[in-house]
Write a protein that binds this DNA or RNA. Structure first.
Lengths: 173, 173
DNA sequence: CCGTCACTTGCACTGAGTGCAAGTCGAGGT
DNA sequence: ACCTCGACTTGCACTCAGTGCAAGTGACGG
């Protein structure tokens, strides 16, 4: 189903493929498509139902007293490892259909909302959280998929090193 | 026209107001609405046609040799001064209809694309540009409109101070 | 009075998305 | 073997966004 849609849209582009096309090509009815996916975009950008659990696991793994900036870096390094396949796929989708950037961001919003919930709503904390997101936003599009996960992680570390919080002593429980 | 739409959507929410509603309420035909605005969202989030010129002006005003991080900060301070009204209005719209966040981001994309074009496509440079955007993304929603432009600027400065680039010596021509 | 130019409008169409009711089919229970 | 219940699928009819086209309207200069 997803494969069908990805291949169709890879050829013609997102807008040029209708839901009817996908449904017909996948051998199901148009109505059934909407039973599986809430909208056309979701066939490409799917929130994995057990993502929240994954986030909790990764977040809980952060040792108490670790500086926030380090926690954020490690969180992202581990998260990108786990969802590496998806990053790869989304990168391909966005290359073929850049207009879907907002879908990609909305998916990411959920993750970052979870991080913010954990980190607390202090202004300085939120700046760092959003800066961490900025690092990821910079690295993912620039990352050469051929360099694999290692290449991505190198870029991410570089980005984090570049933006030193001027309050590195700030930690939180 | 815009006023009509804003007030209708302020009451009922974005989705609950159809283009027919807006058109009827504004005394024009549905078709004419789409002559003015390319889509329903645009009635709230309008790219000002001479924004690009404004950006160029602000960007060109940055003195050669100024550290990038400082340039970005000053750019944002001046930009937010000029488009203060719009920031205010968008803040109200987003409060009433948070689902329009992606529209807001797409409008902002244009500005940040211009900044990126100016700053160059070096990785370290782009990280700083995106971090600057992160600061603005953090400050705008937290900003209490009652504190006015001064309050917003204070927050922005605070955010910029928090994220020191670890390469402050980096400038560019 | 006429032509033209800009703007508005109606109409018909495509495509997304939804609610509802009917159909299908397999797993159990009797 | 038969019935039933529940999950899944489907068709149908509907709303709404958005577009292309062609016709209408009105102002303005010749």
């Amino acid at each position: 189903m997803r494969e069908t849609a990805v291949s169709l849209m890879g050829e013609r582009g997102f807008d040029a493929v209708s839901v009817d096309d996908i449904a017909a090509s996948a051998g199901i009815s148009r109505r059934t498509f909407f039973n599986y996916f809430p909208d056309k975009e979701s066939v490409l950008f799917d929130p994995d139902p057990d993502d929240p659990a994954l986030w909790s696991r990764l977040i809980d793994a952060r040792p108490a007293g670790e500086p926030l900036w380090i926690s954020l870096r490690e969180l992202i390094l581990e998260y990108t490892s786990v969802v590496f396949e998806r990053i790869h796929r989304h990168k391909g989708v966005l290359k073929a259909s850049p207009e879907l950037r907002s879908c990609s961001r909305e998916i990411a919003d959920r993750f970052w909302d979870a991080v913010r919930d954990w980190a607390g709503d202090d202004f300085r904390v939120e700046v760092q959280v959003n800066a961490a997101r900025a690092v990821l936003n910079t690295t993912c599009p620039r990352w050469d998929a051929a360099t694999g996960l290692e290449g991505l992680h190198t870029l991410i570390r570089e980005g984090f090193d570049l933006l030193q919080s001027s309050h590195p002593e700030r930690t939180f429980s």
